[in-house]
Nucleic acid binder design. Structure first.
Length: 274
DNA sequence: CATTTCACCTGGTGGC
DNA sequence: TGCCACCAGGTGAAAT
């Protein structure tokens, strides 16, 4: 489900609702791929710890944890994959199918991780034994013009494939790659190293605007995405190309075209994007 | 190393 | 109603 705006929305919602709460008990499903750190270690690490803060890094949600309720000594890192959800629920609310984690909190509420396709991952880090989690790529909302341009120097892959590469930029996914390329008038198949400095700067600014706009609208609810409160986002109403194959371009009326690129459905306006 | 392809999963949709 | 093909917000391993 989730790219940067959806993950940001969820992290903010979870932080607002359970910051300061304490994990008193943990339940995990048996799906082995879900647990990047062995289930037993995660359960032991989480139980009894206080959640000091929750925030987003790239497409990851990071829980800052503490045994002493003051100094951060551990992290719980959640990646939602394609269909993952984090929900803060009352314990009597029915447990959805495909629930893989239930964190029972001191306040009586419950944090649930639900993930039908099981592409999501849960990881626990003891900061006394390992370094803190860091995204490999740069944050597209924080990077400046020269650093952004440098990322694509010498890259011969299509610009869209480079945008999806998380070790370059952390957080851009299929929707926002297509939308930002539309708003900067660039064809997804253009080789990254063939873009002019001016085009790259248009792309950087378009990315910032699209991502910030989407965050303001609570993300894109394409099929079943909901935030920590179960609320849908509204940015899907603003999509110009993503999943609008055959529909008229909002700017020029030309039918939106769909191609396959880097294994992903890719949408663009053949007239506006060059 | 850079790049591309594919497997990993379940569920929804639309055609016949 | 059933069956089948195809599609879906992501990524990491394997192949090229």
């Amino acid at each position: 489900m989730p790219e940067l705006p959806e993950v940001e929305t969820i992290a903010r919602g979870v932080n607002k609702r359970i910051r300061g709460d304490r994990i008193v008990q943990v339940w995990f499903s048996r799906a082995p791929q879900t647990f990047k750190t062995p289930r037993k270690l995660q359960a032991e690490g989480l139980t009894g710890r206080t959640i000091l803060a929750v925030h987003r890094t790239g497409k990851h949600i990071v829980f800052e944890l503490s045994r002493s309720a003051s100094e951060i000594d551990a992290q719980w890192i959640v990646h939602l994959g394609m269909t993952g959800r984090l929900l803060v629920s009352s314990p009597d609310f029915p447990v959805p199918a495909h629930t893989h984690a239930r964190l029972f909190l001191e306040s009586g509420r419950e944090l649930r991780f639900v993930d039908p396709r099981r592409f999501g991952r849960l990881e626990f880090r003891d900061l006394n034994r390992r370094s803190a989690f860091a995204a490999p790529g740069d944050d597209p909302l924080a990077i400046g013009e020269p650093e952004f341009a440098a990322l694509f120097r010498g890259r011969r892959s299509p610009i869209k494939a480079a945008l999806l590469n998380q070790s370059l930029l952390a957080g851009v996914g299929n929707i926002y790659a297509d939308e930002s390329l539309f708003h900067s008038n660039i064809r997804p198949r253009r080789r990254a190293n063939r873009l002019t400095r001016l085009e790259l700067e248009r792309l950087r600014l378009a990315l910032c605007e699209v991502l910030n706009h989407a965050i303001r609208l609570g993300g894109s609810s394409v099929s079943d995405y909901v935030d920590a409160d179960g609320e849908r986002g509204f940015f899907q109403l603003e999509h110009c190309v993503y999943q609008r194959t055959g529909e008229p371009c909002r700017r020029c009326g030309t039918p939106i075209r769909r191609i396959l690129l880097a294994g992903r459905g890719t949408h663009y306006c053949p007239n506006c994007q060059r």
